[in-house]
Write a protein that binds this DNA or RNA. Structure first.
Lengths: 206, 206, 206, 206
DNA sequence: GATGAATGAGTCTTCATTCAT
DNA sequence: GATGAATGAAGACTCATTCAT
């Protein structure tokens, strides 16, 4: 009982978050238990409740942080880009692949555990996701507007491209024949192809 | 106690399967309980165990049936087709979209609940899935061989296209602005575009 | 697991109710646990939930049964009585003392655990209690009307008499110097005295 | 960490006691938690342990203070009284009603939470209670001795009168039709009636 | 085929309490 | 005096499952 010497709240919370990401991604939020999680970080289950009042709050914390960081990371990347939608699409695809390959657990959770959120929590996370989708959609709209892309239904194209890109995590494993940057290149080309952007641009933008 | 008047094994099982698909899709396999399921079909939980020895067996039954039916349905469609990979890709895309839009629960389960399968069960379902993926992959390989498609990494392209097509279920809802066949058309075009097939073929194949 | 040979639902429930009365009366509803209760009746805690969906439902069951039985018992006694309020008051006092002394646990719960009831459950039990109080109040009103009793505030007198009578359970123990029927006699006289009924009637009515 | 500016031990303790009385009276000692209590006084739970080593000690503190104050208050009132048992009974009844109506929480706890006391603590509080009961009992014995009261079993009469008087708290609420002093008058008359003291004395003593 | 009674392991969560800071 | 971090035991309740009937 009582405080562990040298213990510090924020460090402990970060450790737990990391472990929870892994655990929830592997077993699913519903199937994972607070006991298992506590064991992973060598705490007692009750100690977890110092940091998050409920299991759901922990999940929300993970998802909220992921979505915020994702949007923030894109915002930082976006400022470096011109207004050319072809360049932006290429950058978006590569960014998405890279970000996803680096954070498979976060991504997995974000796509799989939405149904386990209570309505108000769902709404918050969903809003972030729509925001992210609109980034791509706006690129496609602009691309179509200036005649550089074919996207008769930009929303559909955006959803299709995002699904395609996100799918990389279902099969890619480090150490295989293809490197992460090979994969990035391939997906960036396919994404461009979906909206009928010719291939020459890819290599420059890489 | 004793048999319900008018009850029939296979009919009851089919009813339960339908309810289980819905329930597992909505709440997730881990979060759904046999009690909830029993209540949905107005039975007592213990009665379910006459049909499936465990909850997991029920899940496996659902997934196995879905995958078998999917492969069977494709097999039936495929015999009508020529060997032209462009025609086959178009047919595959349309088939996939149609099949998915008609069976959102089955599809959802097939992609979401694999991690909840015990290893041997996982292996069986996974084998079906790879078989299905290889259908598309073989089309792309042939398309590339005869120079009609660009798929430097056919496996990657196949995974990308399947992810893209399957993604339709995350956003499509009946009664929206786009009809199911509009969507089918759009996705078939995008799938072709991924491997740089020009657009003329689409309309004929529709 | 599974059914115990020869087990029967209603018998088991009755056993549990008995044990719960004892346990809740001794420790208080809030302080008593379902584990303790299960141990008392040699069941596993989960089995209790076959009979009552929650701990609160068990409490309500106990209180509801007690109040219903109390009112029923009085109704049966009342039919034997004349309309004379003096006779009725005497009968009521004796009935109350006897009933309370015979069921100390039920009575204790009924007076102590009302605050632990959720509002709707409280309302139901409270209605019974008011009904019972009104029995006495009506006697006093009639007694005052015909000039046989002094009860300027019949409600207050009724509450006072009931509190007085019910208090017997706080000190009476079997086997002491006074028998239950001594106590009944004493309390009946005191109750009569509260509304200034002279003593002569007591002995006859005993 | 460290002391809050302007904080003062005894003041804080008094605040906590007040909140604990309210909380324990409303929810019951067993059902109330140190966390709830801490929140009520805007402290952290651990801070409470500076004042009372355990939750039980806090309860004992409350009960002990109440009983001591009650006995002390009666002692102060008693010195003003003659030896006339009729006057003393009237004064006792009025004192009891007044004291109870003014401190419903304390009174409630004193009657309800005795069972939650550990044996030695129970013994201490119980001793006070018996002392208080003996005050009334002694009055009745004296009254019977000089022929001014009828109390064949003074202990029983004392218990009955105390139960009757204490019951006022179960129904009386400020702001109703009857004022506190109406109620005091009514109860003083009923208490006298229990031991067959005639009515004339009441008004003088008011 | 189906049910009601039961189990044992487990769920999330709260509890009173402790002690380094 | 007070806090934040932690504990271990226990809380009510649910789970998949079993088996006598």
């Amino acid at each position: 009982m009582a405080r562990k010497p040298g213990s510090n709240g924020e460090e402990t919370a970060a450790l737990v978050r990391e472990a929870a990401l892994e655990l929830f991604a592997q077993q699913g939020y519903a199937a994972a238990s607070m006991r298992q999680l506590a064991k992973l970080v060598d705490m007692r289950p009750s100690a977890l409740y110092h940091y998050w009042p409920t299991k759901q709050d922990l999940l929300v914390d993970l998802l909220e942080r992921h979505m915020t960081a994702l949007l923030q990371a894109w915002a930082e990347r976006a400022v470096e880009l011109s207004n050319d939608p072809i360049e932006r699409l290429d950058a978006f695809s590569r960014f998405h692949i890279r970000y996803h390959l680096a954070r498979p657990n976060e991504v997995f959770l974000s796509y799989m555990e939405l149904r386990n959120l209570e309505p108000q929590n769902f709404a918050r996370i969903e809003a972030h996701r729509r925001h992210y989708e609109s980034v791509l959609k706006d690129i496609l709209i602009e691309g179509a507007r200036i005649g550089a892309m074919q996207a008769p239904e930009p929303h559909v194209s955006a959803m299709a491209i995002i699904a395609m890109l996100t799918g990389v995590n279902t099969w890619y494993r480090d150490g295989g024949r293809l490197s992460a940057s090979d994969v990035e290149q391939l997906y960036a080309e396919m994404a461009a192809a979906v909206v009928r952007v010719g291939r020459q641009n890819k290599t420059e933008a890489a």
